[in-house]
Nucleic acid binder design. Structure first.
Lengths: 204, 204
DNA sequence: CGTCATCTTGAGTACGATCAAGAGGGGTGG
DNA sequence: CCACCCCTCTTGATCGTACTCAAGATGACG
């Protein structure tokens, strides 16, 4: 997870969001892209009848919106308090002629695409326990720690993994019953048997 | 679907594939990217125990592998006879300094990302009938025709939509029973009630 | 201490998977 | 030209996982 730092600071206006507040909405004109400094956001879309799918949780160092063309393809909302820097889209075209900045944008797009494939594998072909095991391992890998402090609610996890909150709760308890994790609180989880949970997560 | 034409033809070696043959495998060193001239390929990944997820079907005009960094993140196989042009990865870096080629590559990445989000919505939050309705409408839109000649098998469709071949077959018949499509043969489908199938597909 | 939101737990249901058999269709050889 | 085989697709019966609906527990905040 390389931290992308933009030095064209003259154009980077700071934006602060409270929990639940949106950075931009699906369908908005894509006027800017953002670099997250602090906090966690969720990128999601909803069906007309209210079903929600979260595509991605993004945190410090991640770029948002570089993949948008005219209109934003998804809504971005703050999961925690968030600090981000806003870069006008107009500048992106020019920045792309600089090899270093270009590679950072490209790397962000490629990383997003790679993460997306794993997520599609998960949504299309894995059962609830496997989805949760993968989710926990991915977060633990990001944090480089077997102890996880989840910033998001069960509803967010459910909408990210294509499950319901009840199933998330039940399967989390199932993993606990198997002895592979310890639920120190609803948001604090410790992986106690890394080998075993990797075996459950299984698919790359 | 803009057709991407690369003029650096000195480096573009033609590659031909028979049905089922692979263009490259997941884990291969990403030595080249490809532009498809004719035919259809499937981009997929498999779990250790043999479950398969198809991320994307690509056809004439599509770029493959520009999103790969060191290693290919997925396997590409021919669904039909395929003709493609191979461009060494080494040239991509240089080509990116040319604004026009760069924009083509970026557009390809963005289009893939956008398609991917719709697919995640589908896999995570839609039922079998909705998935099939979306699939048929997407193909019909590409062909600009209410008549569809499917190049891929039921197994491919199932692995693309996160279903089984039996469910694909049953739900296709279900749509037929509703009078929204006509199954002229297993691979030839006509959309007879566009409004109704759009209502079933519903979610964007 | 009370309220509200989130999370957990329970009971019943439904959708799609699994297992199994049969139909269709294309290609090959007699 | 027809018979046979193989592969794909369809159809049927049963099963199981995750969803739905409902109630209760937990925790944060005033």
């Amino acid at each position: 997870m390389p931290v992308v730092v933009h030095n064209r600071s003259e154009a980077a206006r700071e934006v602060r969001l409270r929990r639940g507040q949106a950075l931009f909405f699906e369908g908005d004109t894509a006027a800017a892209y953002y670099a997250i400094d602090r906090g966690t956001v969720r990128c999601c879309r909803m069906t007309p009848d209210g079903r929600r799918q979260i595509f991605r949780f993004a945190g410090a160092g991640d770029l948002l919106g570089v993949g948008c063309t005219e209109r934003c393809g998804y809504t971005v909302e703050a999961v925690t308090e968030v600090v981000a820097r806003r870069h006008p889209m107009a500048g992106l075209e020019a920045e792309m002629s600089d090899a270093q900045l270009r590679n950072r944008v490209l790397a962000a797009l490629r990383a997003e695409l790679a993460a997306t494939r794993t997520q599609m594998m998960l949504l299309g072909r894995m059962n609830a326990a496997e989805r949760l095991a993968n989710f926990l391992l991915t977060i633990a890998a990001e944090r480089r720690s077997s102890f996880i402090e989840l910033p998001m609610s069960r509803a967010d996890i459910a909408d990210y993994l294509g499950l319901t909150i009840e199933t998330v709760s039940r399967k989390l308890n199932g993993l606990h019953a198997l002895g592979v994790i310890r639920l120190e609180s609803p948001t604090r989880i410790r992986i106690t048997d890394p080998g075993r949970i990797e075996a459950i997560a299984e698919a790359a």
